[in-house]
Design a binder for these strands. Structure first.
Length: 667
RNA sequence: GCGCUCGUAGCUCAGUUGGAUAGAGCAUCUGGCUUCGAACCAGAGGGCCGCAGGUUCGAGUCCUGCCGAGCGCACCA
């Protein structure tokens, strides 16, 4: 918790500026930064540079005036003007640490954020096993959920299931046409094999089959039609495939501590006629209109307004390029129409609701709900879903255009605020490194275009990709080998559990540490590594911290509370003089600031780097014999160091929790 | 053609409201386990921040142009 101090320093600088120079403009921002080293200060601001021209004074002189006029600030020991013009602040170290441990004073409460936020993520086509690209989506989405909750936002997590799309239809075609299998055969396969893996292979074969004769695509169209209209046996088989694969996906995600509150099924959106209602709204508000001329004649279209687009230079611009067809001339709705209906519902603007049924049990024991359109399945008592003040849609960058259309649709029906509060959480895709593609047996022809690209694109249609569970298995196996080597006294099931925790940390950290705009060229060897900047590195730091606290009890018979209880009032020399210890405490306190930055930028790489950097500082501290806690003879020094360890461990544990990662009992 | 992203160490990447000396991991090299357990730590080498202009007290970060790469822009989903 450092943000309240930032605010206090800002307020006092503002106050001093008003008194000294009559500067009261609210637009003046006072940036708070961290000087390059603690000898210069704990916090600092370059505000004097901004004012130099305005006040016709050297930055240094302004900073000096401010330092003299700012007066005492609670929690601050001194304010200095640096020779180059920075205004630097030194904190009262003992008070700072004691307050953060809840041993002195009280920290201001977090701001209330009562408005409900929906986060939709994962949305994997339920026709095959999840792959690493899907994992990036889910890891980002779940981290977003955790970060929002951390700062007090009520969050509803949804996973959209496209059970009536082409991809499910393709696997149905595989069962019916290629394998000549019935629903009972499918059930038999599901009972005896990895069904999602089976579908993975079958899906790739269906793609090849289509390539063999384009006429076969007509079978796909007919299958899709049967699914949409509930024609059996096709519809029942499709439903079975989708449900079975969804359960497999849930299982996969649970291995990474990812789950959901509600599964929204596209089939229910169709059957409950959400689109018909959305279409009414769009027509009533004039958001869409029936085009009577040009190439879109007979279609219902929406104007695309693009304020960023350059104006047509010589009036030769194609007017149709500024229109998006929403309803085709044959009366059927385009894909994005269903998305609009779903989004209107999320934003509480549809005037219609799903029915709900219980689907499964969540990891914390709560109910995982699913939508339904079947009265006989519907449960009367259910939580209120949808109708959120803000929405985050976690979808890769290729969907940017469609997400933009969704925002425009909200605007066009007269709800610009809702449009503004719909955020497309976009991120780049996961591809494969050439080395990994080769290991999988997908080496492109060295003379082909593909070979010249910086990475190899994943393709579900070709069956080219790394399955999520295969990756997780490999990482866990490797972790288990390490655990077996180091913790041979532990029973096998406990070792297994630890390996699973370490594996989840490795995978999740790997998926979070890149910025959203970076294409991850997935390399298997890099992903399974536990050395350096990885999740297990952070876990290891926390395990070491726990070790110190355990030893303290063993050696001195003091538990954590007793150790800390002796701190208030004890001589603060150590923390005042030990730069390394203080740097650790100050850095640890920045979590709230980091979380705000993460929500503002939607960059979880920031969180990952913070966790790693703090763990790194702690590891150095731990490894330094001069900083030993239990070998320290002076009781006060021991207590201050223990306090720093406790605080650091607390903050690192929170960071891991935000990443959906647990702390192993031992490593 | 238009739009959006990206180009930083040998490799993979940070540098997200323009700030003090451009960082991390991996790889390479040198040290360190009878120590709070080395999944670690200490240290070394390694940079025209794609190129050229501009704005600013200050630019890896903002603007313009160029070069190079990726992804979008359907009466597909």
């Amino acid at each position: 918790m450092i943000l309240p101090l930032h605010e206090e320093v800002r307020a006092r600088v503002r106050d001093a500026l008003a008194r000294l120079h009559g500067i009261t403009d609210a637009e003046l921002t006072i940036p708070i930064e961290y000087p390059p080293n603690r000898a210069l200060g704990d916090l600092g601001t370059p505000v004097a540079f901004d004012l130099a021209r305005r006040l016709r004074k050297a930055p240094r002189a302004i900073a000096q005036e401010l330092a003299g006029a700012i007066g005492p600030i609670a929690g601050v020991s001194r304010v200095d003007a640096a020779p180059n013009g920075y205004l630097n602040v030194f904190l009262d170290r003992p008070t700072f640490l004691l307050a953060r441990l809840g041993l002195a004073g009280s920290l201001p409460p977090a701001p209330a954020r009562p408005e409900k936020t929906i986060v939709e993520h994962t949305a994997i086509n339920p026709n095959k096993a999840a792959h690493i690209g899907h994992l990036r989506n889910s890891a980002l989405g779940d981290t977003l959920v955790r970060v929002l909750k951390f700062r007090g936002n009520p969050v509803e997590v949804q996973n959209y299931i496209d059970d009536t799309g082409v991809q499910v239809a393709d696997v149905v075609v595989g069962f019916q046409q290629l394998e000549k299998l019935s629903i009972d055969d499918a059930k038999r396969i599901a009972a005896s094999t990895r069904f999602d893996y089976y579908c993975w292979d079958l899906y790739a074969r269906v793609t090849e089959w289509y390539d063999g004769d384009k006429e076969r695509l007509k079978i796909r169209a007919a299958t899709l039609h049967d699914i949409e209209h509930g024609v059996d046996p096709t519809a029942t088989l499709a439903s079975f495939i989708a449900h079975t694969v969804v359960h497999a996906h849930l299982k996969t995600m649970a291995r990474l501590n990812i789950d959901y509150q509600l599964l929204t099924w596209e089939g229910d959106i169709l059957r409950l006629k959400f689109w018909a209602r959305a279409f009414e709204v769009l027509k009533e508000t004039g958001a869409v209109f029936l085009q009577s001329e040009g190439k879109h004649a007979g279609c219902w279209v929406m104007k695309i307004d693009d304020p960023d687009a350059a104006p047509a230079e010589d009036g030769e611009e194609d007017p149709e390029a500024r229109e998006k067809v929403i309803v085709r001339s044959n009366g059927t709705v385009v894909y994005v129409g269903k998305d609009m209906a779903y989004q209107f519902w999320k934003s509480g603007l549809l005037g219609r609701d799903f029915l709900y049924r219980k689907f499964a049990t969540r990891m914390d024991g709560d109910t995982l709900w699913a939508t339904t359109s079947d009265q006989s399945q519907a449960v009367a008592e259910h939580p209120k879903f949808g109708d959120a003040a803000a929405t985050y849609n976690v979808i890769d960058v290729r969907q940017s255009y469609l997400q933009k259309l969704l925002k425009q649709a909200l605007s066009a029906i007269g709800h610009p605020q809702e449009a503004d509060r719909l955020k497309h959480f976009s991120y780049e895709m996961v591809a494969l490194s050439h080395a990994t593609a080769q290991q999988l047996g997908f080496a492109p022809d060295p003379n082909s275009e593909e070979a010249k690209k910086p990475f190899v694109e994943v393709s579900g249609r070709k069956g080219l990709g790394v399955k999520a569970d295969d990756l997780i298995d490999r990482v866990i196996d490797k972790a288990l080998a390490e655990v077996d080597r180091r913790q041979s006294d532990l029973p096998p099931d406990e070792r297994r559990r630890i390996a699973e925790q370490i594996g989840a940390a490795a995978v999740r950290y790997f998926l979070i540490k890149y910025s959203r705009t970076t294409v991850i060229a997935f390399d298997i060897d890099e992903a399974v590594s536990f050395v350096g900047e990885t999740g297990p590195y952070i876990q290891y730091a926390v395990v070491r911290a726990n070790k110190i606290i355990g030893k303290l009890q063993e050696r001195f018979g003091l538990d954590e509370t007793a150790t800390l209880a002796g701190l208030p009032g004890s001589p603060p020399d150590l923390i005042n003089e030990d730069a390394e210890l203080w740097a650790l405490v100050l850095e640890a306190s920045r979590l709230d600031e980091i979380v705000e930055q993460v929500v503002r930028s939607l960059e979880f790489a920031v969180l990952a780097k913070f966790g790693f950097g703090l763990a790194q500082m702690f590891s150095a501290f731990y490894q330094n014999p001069k900083q030993s806690v239990i070998n320290e003879d002076r009781a006060e020094a021991r207590r201050w160091r223990a306090a720093a360890v406790v605080y650091c461990r607390q903050q690192l544990t929170r960071v891991l929790d935000l990443m959906g990662v647990a702390v192993p009992a031992r490593m």
